[in-house]
Structures are given as C-alpha cells and as structure tokens.
C-alpha cells in the first residue's frame, strides 16, 4: 500500500463565459479528477467559477526571474511598437 504524499496541482478557473482561465492557487490531490473535485470545494464555494483546469505543478516550466531583465529586454526597448510613439497632427481623427 502506498503512503506517498499526494502530488501538488495548480488550479485555473474561468469565472464566466468570455473570460480566460486564471491561476487561483494550488492544492494536493491523488489524481486529476480528485484535483478538480477539490478545486471546486476550495476555490468555487461562492460561484467564483464555471470551469476548472488543473495541471500537476511539476509539469509547469517557468521563465527564470533572475534573468527576467535580459529576457524581456527586447520588449522594453522597442517603444515604436506602441501607438503613442507616433505624432498625429491636430485635426486628424479616427486614428
């Protein structure tokens, strides 16, 4: 008989149709179905959701926060990607 600890799961909830699933927290469960059932009891006791995703935490690959400055630098330096970079002459509308 196995007495191993239940694995950790990350829980994502869609609060209503039209919105994407959002990370709400984690919990432990023996398998995916139990994780879904527990997530309902823990994270949706007050109508917070209409759909639940769970994924085992160990399957998540994350970017390294220590390297985030270099990693996200390309998006910091390209200010011309934003509409506010451009001058629109007075009198021009619908733009």
């Amino acid at each position: 008989m196995s007495s191993k600890e239940w694995p950790l799961w990350e829980v994502f909830i869609r609060s209503k149709q039209g919105l994407s699933h959002k990370h709400v927290g984690s919990l432990r469960a023996a398998d995916a179905q139990m994780a879904i059932d527990n997530a309902r009891d823990v994270y949706t006791r007050r109508s917070e959701g209409i759909s639940i995703w769970v994924i085992e935490s160990k399957l998540v690959t994350a970017s390294d926060p220590d390297e985030s400055a270099e990693f996200f630098e390309p998006s910091e330096s390209k200010i011309y990607r934003h509409p506010t970079f451009y001058n629109v002459p007075d009198g021009i509308s619908h733009m």
Binding site: M1, S2, S3, K4, W6, A30, D31, Q33
Partner: peptide, 16 residues
C-alpha cells in the same frame, strides 16, 4: 484518515 489517503493513491494508480 491514513487509510483514506492510501486508498485514494491506490485508486489513482488503478485509474491510470
């Protein structure tokens, strides 16, 4: 409650 946690593990194995 130990037997419940063990049973859940066994059931998860079986389902897998």
């Amino acid at each position: 409650g130990a037997w419940v946690r063990e049973a859940a593990n066994a059931f998860a194995e079986k389902r897998k």
